[in-house]
Design a protein around this nucleic acid. Structure first.
Lengths: 131, 131, 131, 131
DNA sequence: GTGGTCTAGACCACA
DNA sequence: GTGGTCTAGACCACG
């Protein structure tokens, strides 16, 4: 699994790392029970401070996606995020509204954005067959 | 009543204000040449400090959406954001990818999200007929 | 004499008016003893508030370029600005340094800027023959 | 000691700071990737409030000259200002015209001003050899 | 009346 | 430690 950080992105580094892991799980690059890179390894690979990796792993643990054990490492859990359906949709709504605003603001056809969305989602879904 | 602040929203107040104005322009509630609420008015109305409105208007000016003149007020500019089409799409891509990740992660059907997006965009677009 | 205001210019309106008059005097469009447009006329022509014209005329009077008399109007005086040579140069230095910074910053050849300067100065100087 | 403030200068403090940084980049005192003084450091050094430095850095970020990241610091960006050449020249024209007006108005020989300009630009350009 | 600048001091988020 | 946000209140410049 590769962690990539975009310094030009406004999103905090640790959240970018979280997204990388989530993406890896979504595509099947990481599966239940798999061990994540150690904090030290990940820090070297992503060229960020260990504390930042630490914080990202903590966040992932809060999300219920991984489980860290002293001296053993961090492992992907089987449980996905356990939000109620209603909460999930509500969380999405914020993102959707933002995207809609940008779309209208930049006068880009909604259908174009939908095509982008389908493609982006497909990338995440289909690659599950990779390994 | 253009500006509304959601204290529960993580987004900084001044950016929420920016989005309010962008939304108002997108829906046609504000048109080229229109005067924005004065900083003092907006501050009272949104119950925030004057400086916060100032910050938001400054951001809007940097976005090329409004023009503020000492002693005169702040007015909507004719020119929209002047990014190249390619840059617009690139900016959208980030948001789209985020949305796709959330969609897959929470195992929500892509079509549901697309429906939400269409609705959200329609809300912005259709209200242009108001006057 | 025509007063033109550029709303996109950062310079305050009243100073833009001052510059217009100074330019008119430099080119010979206005000569010693000539009457300036009345405040009311100028306000209509430039589409600005009378107070703004008022302030510009006040500034011009402070510069010693015009003389206003109650009920009679404002007239161009023979005396130019009466700064010492040293002060003049010092005043210019600020502008020159700003221009130099912009030139280097935007990586424009100094000679190009000099050409622009010569041309701009020539425009002011040569038109003295017009009337 | 990059930042110096002239209290007698009419220009707002934060813009003086912006110019200091632009000058530092122009002379090569600051290069791509270099870290700027932290906001707190700069505030102490320039004897102004932290917010004033913040404002200046914000402006520099909008100019595309620096990039600030929470917790990390502010760094000089590789990309200079990305205006089209035509726009650069247009921006310069305003300054040039102002300078020309002053020159003619104070009856200072254009060649004197040109000499001043060359010298001022040379100061910025030549110091690039420092290291 | 308008917007612009600056200060002082607080609290938060990030690395 | 870093930068980001917000408030409160002051003073100034412009129209």
């Amino acid at each position: 699994m590769i962690i990539t950080i975009d310094l030009n992105n406004n999103k905090p580094t640790y959240l970018q790392i979280v997204d990388c892991v989530r993406r890896a799980v979504a595509t099947g690059a990481l599966k239940t029970g798999d061990q994540l890179p150690t904090i030290r390894e990940a820090a070297v690979q992503a060229r960020v401070n260990r504390n930042t990796i630490s914080r990202a792993y903590l966040e992932l643990e809060h999300l219920g996606m991984i489980r860290s054990r002293q001296g053993a490492g961090s492992f992907v859990t089987d449980a996905g995020p356990d939000l109620e359906h209603e909460e999930r949709v509500k969380a999405l709504q914020t993102l959707v509204d933002e995207l809609a605003l940008e779309t209208v603001h930049y006068q880009i056809p909604v259908d174009d954005v939908i095509a982008m969305l389908r493609e982006s989602a497909a990338k995440l879904g289909k690659e599950s067959d990779h390994d």
